[in-house]
Design a protein around this nucleic acid. Sequence first.
RNA 1: GUCCCCAUGGUCAAGUGGUUAUGACAUCGCCCUUUCAAGGCGGUAUCGGGGGUUCAAUUCCCCCUGGGGACGCCA
Length: 481
Amino acid sequence: MVKVRFAPSPTGFLHIGGARTALFNYVFAKHNRGKFVLRIEDTDKERSTKESEEEILDSLRWLGLDWDEGPRKSADDSMYYQTNRLDVYKKHADRLLAEGKAYRCFCSKEELDLLRREAEAQKRAFKYDGRCAAIPENEAKKRLAENTPYTVRIKVPRDGDTVIEDLVRGRVKTANSVLDDMIIVRADGMPVYNFVVVVDDADMEITHVIRGEDHLSNTSKQVHIYNALGFTPPKFAHIPLILGPDRSKLSKRHGETAVVKYRESGFLPEALVNYMALLGWSPDDEETVFSMEEMTEKFSIERVHKAGAMFDNQKLLWMNGVYIREKKSVKELAALCMPFFEAAGLKNPRSAEYFEKVVALQQEKLKTLAEFPGLSAYFFNEDAPLSEDAKKTWEKNAENRKQVIEVFVNIMKTRGASSAAQIEADIKADMESAGIKPKVYMHVIRVAVSGSTIGPGLFELVETLGAEICVKRAEKLISNG
RNA sequence: GUCCCCAUGGUCAAGUGGUUAUGACAUCGCCCUUUCAAGGCGGUAUCGGGGGUUCAAUUCCCCCUGGGGACGCCA
């Protein structure tokens, strides 16, 4: 059975790159009726936090990337945290040591830094020379007895090539001569990523490792760990990176890349998922708007693109608008808008139905949920002060505005604002007899009742606001000159 | 610097040994229209360069160039 995993380290937020990797893993697993495992790689004690773990889990849930195995999925989920498996890693490390496939390295950080700087000065690639492998056994024992700190390094063959058959990239060959004996256990006894990832993937029987291309050069190193441990490597698929506007790997310096930030900015998870799907993958038809279920059906690694993809906010914005417009339930959309409405400090003095009516009126205009309060404030506030554009419109119609308002107010007072159709009929009739053109009165009324030049259809706008508030705003405006 | 990966419009992608090189976003124009959107129609715009292979290369091979990634007791 296909089994894949997403293995974030809880040292920060779930960012777009990680989310996209999780998405590809998820749909690959679902497509193959396999399992999607979540594993927390917390071997970096310094930077791992519980808060960031919670946030990662939240982000994944929000995106709809629920995991089959992992944290919160069973009574005992300790095996999905690497810090709970230290004894397992130690056992394997000791075994490698005993078998002579690894050795203790007594070089201090300082010494290594020095070597690294020397290499840099000579413009060569730093490569650990394996000097500690040559330490005689009794000498090593002596240092051990003296409690000299040491790391454990794995022996990597000096000759030959390491070949990876990558599902996305094909055959990737690396000369072993460029590899060095890497550290698998730190001086404090904590194993390092390259080691634990191999042990865990093997233990969990992961069949396919789908991860970012930034791991490609690590992979040949990991292959040697698999070999030393006697494990069969899984299949690898290195997916292209997501790039910032400068075409370098998307990171914090490109601005907000955390999934939660997109949520807070009013994006819908289905829009974000759909957009991310298109970054490095395409369906075999020309569809661009599709659900996760459709993606699951169609997904295959063969159709993963090789080149990195720049993250295009404009397209995401467009896609988000598509999903907002597709919402069939106004109630649902209203509930989604509400947090943004409240965050903007607005209050709804009327009924829930009124709120929903406004949402329905704005639905087609929204690119993000966060735009809702800005576009809709005049529906909820007592006053509707004129925007700059509205002032211009008001001034431009200085000649006719007084008359327009009189006619309009008269209609409101005598016949009310019961329905958009009725309002339209009344206004058209009366304005025509007053000899005022639609282009004139439409704009003047809109500005007077909403303070804005943009908004829903005028008659729906008036109907929704109601006669009372329209009259109040119009009279106040005209009395102010 | 060394190693690895990559290269189709501004962006994301499709594509084939012979095509008017396709779609989406963006952009421009027109239409619709009471505003803004949405929608409709149309336009501009792409195979990085050089060598091969071939009757024929955007497609296959090599080189160059360009971009990216990795070179941690981070993951």
